[in-house]
């Protein structure tokens, strides 16, 4: 029977498709809106943009959430991208858990860039990404990387720093 228990543990598929338009991701979209709200970029912006890597369905959910919304009068665009190189062209970025094998490369691409990068899994922040979502008690929470949030020239409000859990870690390639 112990064997059966071990099977249950090992038989979890690596990364099944996430339900990008379900309740969980609508809440995550609202979190991203708040991340934009509580962050200041060093140069003046007339528009903000969120790059969503390889998750067109979440890009849609996020667009619906941000439709007609603005942060201090600045509207936010959503840009679905397939190439991690394009993440740095936006002010915020969402990296799905399905891209966990390329976290290190993505962290390297965004190093010292003014991009608020959010992973969908805490490992992204542990790998040196700025922020990441996780679930606790069926609720969405987030972690921030202690080292990364100081680099990149972003001014992140103390309210965000207070509510997020801090992690260390930067597995440089």
């Amino acid at each position: 029977m112990i064997a059966l228990a071990i099977c249950v543990l090992l038989c979890v598929p690596a990364s099944p498709a996430a339900d990008f338009d379900g309740a969980e991701y609508r809440v995550k979209a609202a979190f991203i809106y708040n991340f934009a709200k509580f962050t200041r970029w060093s140069e003046d912006k007339s528009r903000l943009c969120v790059a969503v890597l390889d998750a067109p369905q979440f890009a849609e959910t996020l667009s619906r959430t941000l439709e007609g919304k603005a942060v201090e009068g600045i509207p936010i665009d959503v840009k679905p991208v397939a190439d991690p190189e394009l993440l740095a062209s936006c002010d915020l970025a969402f990296i799905p858990a399905a891209r966990s094998s390329s976290y290190a490369a993505i962290v390297e691409l965004l190093r010292d860039k003014p991009v608020f990068a959010v992973g969908d899994d805490p490992e992204f922040a542990e790998a040196g990404g700025l922020a990441a979502f996780y679930l606790a008690d069926e609720r969405v929470r987030f972690v921030l990387n202690r080292g990364t949030h100081r680099a990149g020239g972003l001014d992140i409000s103390s309210q965000l720093l207070r509510l997020g859990r801090m992690v260390d870690g930067e597995k440089r390639p």
């Binding site: 339900d19 309740a23 069926e138 609720r139 309210q159």
Partner: peptide, 18 residues
Amino acid sequence: LTQLSLEELMQVEVRSAA
């Protein structure tokens, strides 16, 4: 949901609907 504060968002149970 953007009308909720961060603290409120953190209290939203996301699994019950599913």
